[in-house]
Design a protein around this nucleic acid. Structure first.
Length: 634
DNA sequence: ATAGGGTTAG
């Protein structure tokens, strides 16, 4: 095994069993102590007389330490394995009582740290607290705060803190940091900041971890200004960033779109003598890769190796993706091989990536090969991977292979998702003559997704379209917990489908409901007073036409109702969702045609041919034409 | 006396 991999494993093991190697003797288990003594020393404990005791005090102490440490380790393992398998309840409690031994706070905390389930952890924590002579300290309270925080049990944390103080222990900087982290991760940023101020009032100085956590959570929530402000305050407090902090900030800046600044900071850290670690390099590579600066990403990858770091699983995954997106698919496969040679066990997403890459490259048989390799390796495919393969077959019209994939999903325990349905539906409208329609409809029926029932039971639009709106409304309610991207994908496919099959009124009603339900939050925006943006660039062409028609009609109604006349409207089409060739956009083309037919007074600004601008008196006059209300029927 | 917290991908 290569050096770094085995080091990694050792580290993992050390973390897993952290503490069990330490020489604690706080608790004594009568039964285990005795058996350990006889095993380890080769003499029964009865053989040790009080005379030995007096004569050889040193040896005795040493021996006791050793045996107690072994007993402690065993007991920690033993108790942990009991608790790992149970739900908290009378049975678990009885099992602990039956152990009939005393756990000290140190070992109690070692066990607590490893418990994942917060109900078990809590039960154990209070069981410990009830043991005669037991007293929790700031460490065990802090551990419990962390566990509750991970489970977002904020009320429980607050009562625990009260108890802690009553019990005579006080929160320290680690306790506060864990609270800040917990609140931040649950997106309660105000509460996180509150803790930050409270700790200082309580006389606890924030440390580097405090600032680092605050920077991270604020940047992730999109408050880069607050994050950078915290960075400044950290430096003002005399805390210089370490490798960890630099990595966090570099990641934050990069993710917030300040790629150059993040790179500058990377250079700065090196200039400051702060050595980037593997994670820092992984972050840098991923940031450049996401920005499609592939040569830069690959250069960083080489720098990383020059600096003496062997790639880890994360590195391999990122670099494989970069190579794949550059079109170097064989090289990506080479990475996979290297990764395996270095004893990293490929997981589902890595196989999934290769399936997806080959599928997108149109090499469906390669894609299927990786899919089969995954199954042979005993890795169960997930729904997105099936979707990748399915999509690959659909794109090259291999419908019987697509059918096989779809058919196999339930037997793998996988339910077709909203995305599965979306790509089947998109396939219906993919060709000019809708020639895929029949076979795709069959596949859609097989998927058994609720979206199919929704589409099949779509009523013909009544005079005001209210029936369609209600129908769409209840379907979107059903899809409530799906994330917005997925909902947007499906609505896009549905509206496009309805539009292209001539059901324009229905398409419009579905669009309106989706817009009302905030599925498209960024479509209409007032950039500044009376200056509006209509952003169509994430839509397929049918949806873009429908959305534009209904939005312009909305402006007309606004004028008639309130007299508020927009001074300028920018219609942004971008490159369009379906366009695969830079510069040619179906959305742009369709939108332009529509605007021309209705004689919308637009111009394009130099350098941005994807943006149609209407403004001034001509726009106002145009918006008042009655046909604006019926454009969507074209 | 021991220990405890913060970062990266899909």
């Amino acid at each position: 095994m290569p050096l770094l991999s085995s080091m990694y494993l050792r580290l993992r093991l050390r973390n897993m069993y952290q503490g069990t190697k330490s020489n604690s003797q706080r608790f004594v288990s009568k039964s285990t102590t005795q058996s350990s003594e006889s095993k380890v020393n080769g003499v029964s404990s009865e053989g040790i007389t009080s005379a030995d005791n007096v004569q050889k005090p040193q040896r005795y102490t040493k021996m006791r330490t050793k045996t107690a440490a072994l007993g402690g380790k065993n007991l920690v393992e033993h108790v942990y394995h009991i608790l790992e398998q149970v739900k908290w309840g009378p049975a678990a409690e009885a099992a602990l009582d039956n152990l009939n031994c005393t756990l000290g706070v140190y070992h109690g905390n070692q066990i607590l740290k490893r418990l994942q389930d917060h109900t078990v952890a809590r039960g154990f924590f209070y069981w410990l607290k009830r043991q005669p002579g037991f007293k929790h300290d700031e460490h065990s309270y802090t551990t419990m705060v962390g566990i509750l925080g991970r489970a977002r049990q904020f009320n429980a944390i607050n009562s625990l803190l009260d108890e802690m103080v009553e019990d005579g222990s006080f929160p320290n900087v680690v306790t506060y940091n864990r609270m800040i982290h917990s609140y931040g991760r649950a997106n309660y940023l105000d509460e996180a900041l509150n803790v930050f101020y409270q700790m200082q009032e309580a006389g606890c100085e924030p440390d580097r971890v405090t600032y680092c956590t605050l920077i991270d959570i604020h940047a992730k929530a999109g408050f880069l200004d607050v994050a950078l402000n915290m960075y400044r305050r950290m430096q003002e407090a005399g805390l210089s960033p370490d490798t960890f902090t630099y990595s966090v900030i570099i990641n934050c800046l990069g993710k917030a779109g300040h790629l150059d600044t993040s790179y500058q900071l990377f250079s700065e850290m090196i200039a400051q003598g702060c050595t980037p670690n593997l994670v820092t390099y992984n972050i840098m590579i991923a940031l450049q890769a996401k920005a499609r600066n592939y040569p830069c990403a690959l250069r960083l990858y080489r720098d990383m190796q020059t600096a003496g770091f062997e790639p880890d699983k994360v590195t391999y995954s990122i670099v494989m993706e970069v190579l794949g997106h550059c079109g170097y698919l064989e090289e990506a496969e080479g990475m996979f091989t290297e990764m395996k040679q270095r004893n990293w066990v490929p997981d589902e997403p890595v196989y999934g990536l290769l399936v997806d890459l080959w599928g997108k490259a149109g090499e469906v048989d390669k894609a299927r090969g990786w899919y089969q390799a995954m199954i042979q390796a005993g890795v169960r495919p997930n729904v997105p991977t099936c979707n990748s393969l399915l999509s690959a077959f659909l794109r090259v019209h291999r419908f019987s292979d697509a059918y096989d994939v779809l058919q196999s999903m339930p037997s793998l325990g996988l339910n077709p998702s909203l995305q599965t349905y979306t790509l089947l539906l998109s396939c219906c409208t993919d060709t000019q003559y809708l020639s895929n329609m029949g076979v795709c409809c069959e596949l859609m029926a097989i998927s058994g997704h609720p979206a199919h029932a929704f589409l099949k039971s779509m009523p013909a639009a009544g005079p005001d379209g209210q029936n369609v709106r209600e129908h769409a409304n209840s379907f979107l309610d059903l899809m409530h917990s799906e994330d917005r991207e997925s909902k947007r994908g499906l609505v896009d496919a549905v509206v496009d489908f309805l539009h292209k099959t001539g059901l324009k009124e229905e398409a419009s009603s579905v669009w309106e409901v989706a817009a009302q339900k905030n599925v498209y939050p960024d479509v209409v925006r007032e950039k500044s007073s009376l200056y509006w943006l209509i952003n169509l660039h994430v839509m397929s062409d049918g949806t873009a036409i429908t959305a534009l028609a209904r939005t312009l009609a909305w402006f007309r109604r606004q004028i008639l109702m309130s007299g508020a006349v927009p001074m300028r409207i920018d219609i942004v089409t971008g490159w369009g969702r379906r366009s695969r060739v830079t510069g040619s956009s179906l959305v742009r083309q369709s939108v332009k045609e529509m605007l021309n037919i209705f004689e919308f007074p637009f111009y394009t600004e130099s350098g941005n041919t994807g943006c149609f601008v209407g403004c001034g008196e001509s726009l106002n006059t145009w918006l008042l034409h009655p046909y604006v209300e019926r454009m969507h029927l074209l």
